[in-house]
Write a protein that binds this DNA or RNA. Sequence first.
DNA 1: TTGAATCTGTTGGATAAGCAACACGGGAGA
DNA 2: TCTCCCGTGTTGCTTATCCAACAGATTCAA
Lengths: 191, 191
Amino acid sequence: MLPNLKAEKLDPRVRRTRGLILAAFERLIAEKGFESISVQEVTDRAQINRATFYAHFPDKYALLDYSIGVRFRQEMERRTLNACHYTPDNLRNMILAVCDFLVHLHSDCAQPHQQFESLVEGTLKKGIFDLLSHWLKQTKSRSSTEIPATVATWAIYGLASLYSHNKKRPALEKFVDDALPLVAVNLEQFT
Amino acid sequence: MLPNLKAEKLDPRVRRTRGLILAAFERLIAEKGFESISVQEVTDRAQINRATFYAHFPDKYALLDYSIGVRFRQEMERRTLNACHYTPDNLRNMILAVCDFLVHLHSDCAQPHQQFESLVEGTLKKGIFDLLSHWLKQTKSRSSTEIPATVATWAIYGLASLYSHNKKRPALEKFVDDALPLVAVNLEQFT
DNA sequence: TTGAATCTGTTGGATAAGCAACACGGGAGA
DNA sequence: TCTCCCGTGTTGCTTATCCAACAGATTCAA
């Protein structure tokens, strides 16, 4: 079972602190981009002590990781893709979701730089991979899921990256429908 | 010197907790009125432990007191009436402010009951009295300020109460200009 | 080069907030 | 009447957060 967002029974202080840090961080990212943010700015805006930040995150890169992960899982939950299994249609919806996610991320974030992008890529691929693996393991097929999930993950992220960086983007639905069969063929055995 | 709102150097945890309690309380008051609110509801919404509430306020009546006091001082600060001295014009502005305050309080608050009203009255009169006394003490006049400040306080609150309960209210400016001389005459010696 | 300024991570001890439990009291309903 | 439920305040102990201080890295200007 994928860990649900609200299922975790945390100390309320921890939940509150993380929420404050996250909110401050996301507003700052929208204002001035990831690279130029300092930990101090985040903690000032979040109204928490700087030492407390380090009790939760090793550095601002870990915070970015966390932020992207939370947002991704929230989006999957919103589309009810977190509690289902593999079908070509679910796959289609997931690709749509990832494309959407990247497009919004780029418009929400001032000055996306190289480092930022590659961190996002890593986190997002992990999210996609985990969700896909979760789907595939629910099928009766005995075959290993690692390789097909990896292939599909990279393909999906690649598609979304292509789409989101495209200056004049085609209609999303059309784009995804063109690409879907190429990904789905690798996962046929799990249908 | 009247205590400034941001001047107090409080533990940030205390500041945060009070802010959360206050915000939760004010939203609840707008939703269901003061009487039917329980301490538990406030703390649940504020994401605060119930025991923590009692570390800050004896009960919900003290919270109402605090809330009204903060809002009143904020409003006076906004109108820069907190750092000035007695003049008829400042007095006029203060009466305008108190009327405004009561009108908005009644519209923000679902089901204002008797107990609610009398608590508000006490807190507000204390605020008015303190501010007036602060003004009067800055004049060269040697006379005692207690009696004139008391008379003016009650008069001002009475005016605002009358105005805010009036079904079809006259224009505020006209109302105040009619009443102003009656209050000002008691404070003439401090001009 | 030097020095001032700013940010990063880390630490030990102080303090606020959380938690679970308790006694108490006021309904609501059998 | 009795019991059950719910809200109020209170308490001792645990835990998260705050704080002040530190050493090291980076930048920038004199």
